[in-house]
Design a protein around this nucleic acid. Structure first.
Length: 442
RNA sequence: UCCUCGAUAGCUCAAUGGCAGAGCAUCCGGCUGUUAACCGGAGGGUUGCAGGUUCGAGUCCUGCUCGAGGAGCCA
C-alpha cells in the first residue's frame, strides 16, 4: 500500500481502522472518537473508535512533547479527534496493530459526564441513551449485521428477477381487519399506518410478475415480549404463477443466502457479539417441513395441552423448532386461524396453503406466507365471512376479475431474523431506535 | 388487560427494623507497555411518589407511578 524506503517527504494516508493493516509502517490519518484511554505517566494509550473498528494509539512525551501529551491525557471520553501516526504491528495491541501517535487535533472536546461508561448498565438506562448506546462496539456490530441482512435480501430477490415495488405506509383501511392499527388524520379522513404491503403487492405482480416491498410495519398491539416491536421492518416478496411449493423453495433459498452472506461478510461482527458461526453454517436447503396436524401431534406427545384448531403460542413454536437444527416449515394451518385470503388446500378445505418458517434455538416465527385465493367468488365469500367492509376491498377484488392467476407470497420480519442470526435475547437491539410498548424515545 | 419481579449516588449494586455504603464514572495527585490498566485522595443522597405501623422505616403495610420478564394479542 505504501513504500517504506522513505524519502524526505513522508506522505500521510487517509485511512480507516478496518483498513489499517494495509499501511504497516506508514503514516496514516484516522478520524474518530476517543473510546477509552489508559495513562501511565509518560505514556498514554488512546483507544480510538472510527465507526469501522477500534484501534489502540500510543502517545509518549518523547513523541509529541510535554504540552500536547498533557492535553491528550486530560481528554474526555467520546471527544472527537484526528490522529496522525505510524501503523505498527504489535501483538500487545487489541486487533494486532497500533498507531504510534505523531500528531493529533481535537475536533470537539466532549463534556466530562458521558453517561455510557465501559462498565455494565441496565437495559432501561441503555434504551434511554440509545442515541449514545449505538456507539458501542457490540451495538455497531449488530446494526452492521442488520445492514448486511437487508442487503442480502435485496441482492437475492433482485438476482431472482423480483422488482422492488414499495407499498404505501398510509392506507385507508386495515389489510386484514384483525390487528390493531395506528390511526392518523388524513385531511379530515381517517388513515392507518400499514401493517403489511401484501395486498398492494398482489396488484403489482399483475404488472411486474415478481415483486417485493421492503418497509416499516406498524402494529398497535400491547405486545410486551422479546419478539415484538411496535414498528418493525418486513420484506414481502410476491409472485404471479408461483405455487405454494415453489414459494417454500424460494424461502429456504433466501434464508440460506442471507445466512451465507453474513457468514462471508461479517466475521468480525459475529465474533464481536460472541455468536458461534458453527450453528449458522448448518443452515442449508432443504429445510424440514411439518404439517400443522403433525406439529399438534408432536406437541401432544411432549405433554402440551393443545387440540387441533388452536394457534401456537411462543412456547409451542420453541418446542417444535427445538426438534430441528435448521429452520422448519409448519404448513397447512387450519383455515379458521389464518387470514381470509389464504388458498384452501386442494381436497382439504379445513386447511390452507399457508406456511410459517420457525427459526431454530427458540427464535420463533420469522416468515409467514402462503398461496392466495385467486378465484373471485371464493374471495368475495371470505370477505363476507370475515365481515370486512366490501368497499375497501373492491380494488382487491378487481385483481380477481381481470386476468387472475394463482400466486403466492410471504413476509419476513427483519428484526427477528437479525435476533436469530446474532443470537440475541431480544429484538430491541436489532433496530437502531426501537419503538416498543412504553417506549417512543429517543 | 392479567401474572411475576424490581425502583437506594451519574451508572451497577450492597445495607438483620437501629450512623446511607462499595466499585466504576467525575475532580485532584502518582506511574514509560496499558488491555473494562493500576495506586492514593476528594466531592457526590428528598432511598420512585403519597400515606400508614413503630421509640425508630431504605427495610414492614396500603395505594399510585415508572420499568423489566412473560401471558393474552400478533402472517
Amino acid at each position: 500500500m505504501c513504500s517504506t524506503n522513505s524519502t524526505t517527504e513522508h506522505p500521510i494516508y487517509d485511512a480507516t481502522v478496518s483498513k489499517v493493516g494495509a499501511y504497516e509502517n506508514c503514516t496514516v490519518r484516522l478520524k474518530g472518537w476517543l473510546y477509552n484511554k489508559r495513562s501511565s505517566g509518560k505514556i498514554i494509550f488512546i483507544i480510538l473508535r472510527d465507526g469501522t473498528g477500534i484501534i489502540q494509539c500510543v502517545a509518549s512525551v518523547n513523541g509529541i512533547g510535554q504540552d500536547e501529551f498533557e492535553k491528550l491525557d486530560k481528554l474526555n471520553q467520546e471527544s472527537s479527534l484526528i490522529v496522525e501516526g505510524v501503523v505498527k504491528k504489535d501483538p500487545r495491541a487489541p486487533g494486532g496493530y497500533e498507531l504510534e501517535v505523531k500528531n493529533y487535533y481535537i475536533v470537539s472536546e466532549a463534556f466530562d459526564d458521558y453517561p455510557i461508561t465501559l462498565k455494565e448498565h441496565g437495559i432501561e438506562f441503555l434504551l434511554d441513551n440509545r442515541h449514545l448506546w449505538i456507539r458501542t462496539p457490540r451495538q455497531r456490530a449488530i446494526l452492521t449485521i442488520r445492514a448486511q441482512i437487508v442487503k442480502a435480501c435485496r441482492d437475492f430477490l433482485d438476482k431472482e428477477g423480483f422488482v422492488n415495488v414499495d407499498a404505501p405506509i398510509l392506507t385507508p383501511s386495515a389489510c386484514e381487519g384483525t390487528t390493531t392499527l395506528f390511526s392518523t388524520d388524513y385531511f379530515g379522513e381517517k388513515a392507518y399506518l400499514s401493517q403489511s404491503g401484501q395486498l398492494y403487492n398482489e396488484a403489482a405482480i399483475m404488472a411486474f410478475g415478481k415483486v417485493y416491498c421492503f418497509g416499516p410495519t406498524f402494529r398497535a398491539e400491547k405486545s410486551k415480549t422479546r419478539r415484538h416491536l411496535i414498528e418493525f421492518w418486513m420484506v414481502e416478496p410476491e409472485a404471479a404463477f408461483m405455487t405454494f411449493d415453489e414459494m417454500l423453495v424460494l424461502e429456504e433459498n433466501m434464508v440460506t443466502y442471507i445466512v451465507e452472506h453474513v457468514l462471508a461478510n461479517c466475521q468480525n461482527e459475529l465474533s464481536e457479539i460472541g455468536r458461534d458461526p458453527e450453528k449458522l453454517s448448518q443452515v442449508k436447503p432443504p429445510f424440514p417441513r411439518i404439517t400443522y396436524s403433525d406439529a399438534v401431534d408432536l406437541l401432544k406427545r411432549n405433554g402440551v395441552d393443545i387440540s387441533w384448531g388452536d394457534d401456537f403460542g411462543a412456547a409451542d413454536e420453541t418446542a417444535i423448532a427445538k426438534e430441528f437444527a435448521k429452520p422448519v416449515f409448519v404448513t397447512h394451518y387450519p383455515t379458521k386461524i389464518k387470514a381470509f385470503y389464504m388458498q384452501p388446500t386442494p381436497g382439504d378445505p379445513e386447511t390452507v396453503l399457508g406456511a410459517d418458517l420457525l427459526a431454530p434455538e427458540g427464535y420463533g416465527e420469522i416468515i409467514g406466507g402462503g398461496e392466495r385465493i385467486y378465484d373471485y367468488h371464493l374471495l368475495l365469500e371470505r370477505i363476507h365471512e370475515h365481515n370486512l367492509p366490501l368497499e375497501d376491498y373492491e380494488w382487491y377484488l378487481d385483481l380477481r376479475k381481470y386476468g387472475s392467476v394463482p400466486h403466492s407470497g410471504f413476509g419476513m420480519g427483519i428484526e427477528r431474523v437479525v435476533a436469530w442470526i446474532c443470537g440475541l435475547g431480544h429484538v430491541r437491539e436489532t433496530i437502531p431506535f426501537p419503538r416498543m410498548l412504553n417506549r417512543l424515545r429517543p
